[in-house]
Write a protein that binds this DNA or RNA. Sequence first.
DNA 1: GTGGTCTAGACCACC
DNA 2: GTGGTCTAGACCACG
Lengths: 136, 136, 136, 136
Amino acid sequence: MIQMIINPSDELPIYRQIMRQITEGIALGRLKSGEKLMSHRELSEQLVVAPLTIKKAYDELEALGFIETQRGRGTFVCERLPQLDRRDQLDRVRQAARQLLLQAHLAGLRFSEVVNLLKQAGRELTDSRAKEKEKV
Amino acid sequence: MIQMIINPSDELPIYRQIMRQITEGIALGRLKSGEKLMSHRELSEQLVVAPLTIKKAYDELEALGFIETQRGRGTFVCERLPQLDRRDQLDRVRQAARQLLLQAHLAGLRFSEVVNLLKQAGRELTDSRAKEKEKV
Amino acid sequence: MIQMIINPSDELPIYRQIMRQITEGIALGRLKSGEKLMSHRELSEQLVVAPLTIKKAYDELEALGFIETQRGRGTFVCERLPQLDRRDQLDRVRQAARQLLLQAHLAGLRFSEVVNLLKQAGRELTDSRAKEKEKV
Amino acid sequence: MIQMIINPSDELPIYRQIMRQITEGIALGRLKSGEKLMSHRELSEQLVVAPLTIKKAYDELEALGFIETQRGRGTFVCERLPQLDRRDQLDRVRQAARQLLLQAHLAGLRFSEVVNLLKQAGRELTDSRAKEKEKV
DNA sequence: GTGGTCTAGACCACC
DNA sequence: GTGGTCTAGACCACG
């Protein structure tokens, strides 16, 4: 199970923060298919939030097809993760690219600077994934 | 005045959608300093939105220093626009970069492909800005 | 808005009973696309259940694409209802047909009797739909 | 003894899935009166289910009068099977008929098509029952 | 122990 | 007024 943190003063609701961390954990391979998640009660104690709040995050993730629950046994990352449309996926990437350029433009950065920033972010990401692997 | 679109079923509140489109319009140069904005009533009719909602967007924008109202004359883009905190700006860029990489990772793209996509998005953006200028 | 009833001692959870009545209402044309539903608070008073229970039903229906909410305005039947796969739809029909035959077999009915029962059920259904239309 | 399948992520509890398959097996004649059932342990290994879960299913079936255990000998299908209330049986048939019509309506089928589907399902059912008999 | 459901309240943001 | 979120409890069924 991955380490999670929540920030109660973030404008993103708590249950969404949890959803985001879990989906990103899955996307980045930190949560394997079939892996068991903490029970919502246990996680609620660890993060000091109400159990229902965690449950809501789990419920939405289940509706989206990322995780699945088995009564009395627990909650697990799905073996077959939901596949977005290829077109959908690329749309999201393009949307994120546009967002990046907009923010960069607002900050007055040149294109080469944006690419550098992107490279750096890439390094940070692969580093943290490497760390994960070492642990294993 | 720029053309705006609102989506009532978007998660982002309507008044925020309006704020975003105006600030981005300013940042991208589609709204010039000193330019007059539509009145509450006019805009509320055009967008089919309650006038109070428009007013809230304008009020917040005025509090942030992007626009100013002159009694009896209307609402105008400020001559001296507020500068965001430099650190804040860069944080937003980094956040957007991370988001782009994550989406790209989900779509299974390699880094070089991401950069290509980014270049393409850049071209589209500058193209549409050029068109805007022609109109003027 | 359709009339709903809930039976607290039914083994089907309350929020599911509500979901079922709404989806059936949509399927049978008693709830039109775009129609506004009662607010979850109002409905919770009418049915004498906790507001969150109604909200849960609405939330699940929204995740399934049957209804959509607009903050501050209310909850509405979607204009474009979710289309199941054709194959999926027919599978459900076949499954229901098998279930009917099984129950009929347990009750010792002959095939012709089953068809008669089906015809009768069909009449009841169209009758109640006709009544709805008269109201309008 | 009939072949059973359980699906841990089905909404229906595992012990109920077992009960359903046994009662249907009896109703359809695949399990004869007096026939011996597998022991808890054997069945729990075959289905990869906790022995207590099987025991619960057997206990409930015994309470309902479908099966009986003879100490030291095993568990057997009762010679005199319980008869459901006649009204109850017919109610179930009507309920299944309504369900079939609803699903058919959603799939846009006409009544004659429903009857055809029903006939086909009937053929499949009798075919599979014939096969069962051949095996014996 | 696990998840599933439900209650009765609360506060907030939005329209 | 509306929906959105959260809490702190409770009881049940399941494995």
